[in-house]
Amino acid sequence: MLIFDKVCKRYPDTGDVLLDVSFELHQGEMAFLTGHSGAGKSTLLKLIAIIERCTRGQIFLNGHNLHHIEERYIPFVRRKLGLIFQDYKLLTDRTVFDNVALPLVISGYGHQEIGRRVRASLDKVGLLTKEKKYPLALSAGEQQRIGIARAVINKPTLILADEPTGSLDPELSSEVMILFEQFQQVGVTVLIATHDINLITRMDYRVLSLQNGSLISGGIA
């Protein structure tokens, strides 16, 4: 469902960040993306969400060549993805409910549908009781779970998480990981960028390793 074919990314002022990266992820697969700081993990995820465009090579997402997606259709690609960030990227002046509802509001769903799905999503991450709270009144782990609830509310086929446990303690990290496993079990593809070696070794999933922009292991499925 996700194919990288000799993908290169060059930033004008940094030079090549990704070099001939090729791999394929299948529907329902879960994989870690790892590598030292500056290896290009975040950059790789950004290419999938078309936050950045690749310099060379091709990326296919559900059969669509991302290179050919026009600027105005990018939002519709993003709606099919679930993006999760290390810093959660929650709106601090909106309630938990409104934060989780945002992708649905953007997609133009009606009240009933939004209410139903937000509650289902919050229920899944175990935060149904916090819907009226504001993000800053929640713990780090809870905030990240809100971020996850928001990411999955549009029923994405691919979840991209950039250091989702970066600011969580080990216990909270495993809670979050269990959530990802649950999504994977219902057929969602999950790609997690992390340099948390413990986490990776503890969980037995495919690992894509980047070093100086090249994929040194895990490229072949």
């Binding site: 969400a49 105005r72 939002p75 993003r78 709606r79 709106l91 992708p103 953007i106």
Partner: peptide, 16 residues
């Protein structure tokens, strides 16, 4: 800015 960026990241169109 933050609000706009987040909206963009979760698939908001410019119109929205």
């Amino acid at each position: 800015r933050d609000e706009v960026l987040i909206a963009k990241l979760v698939g908001a169109t410019h119109a929205f």
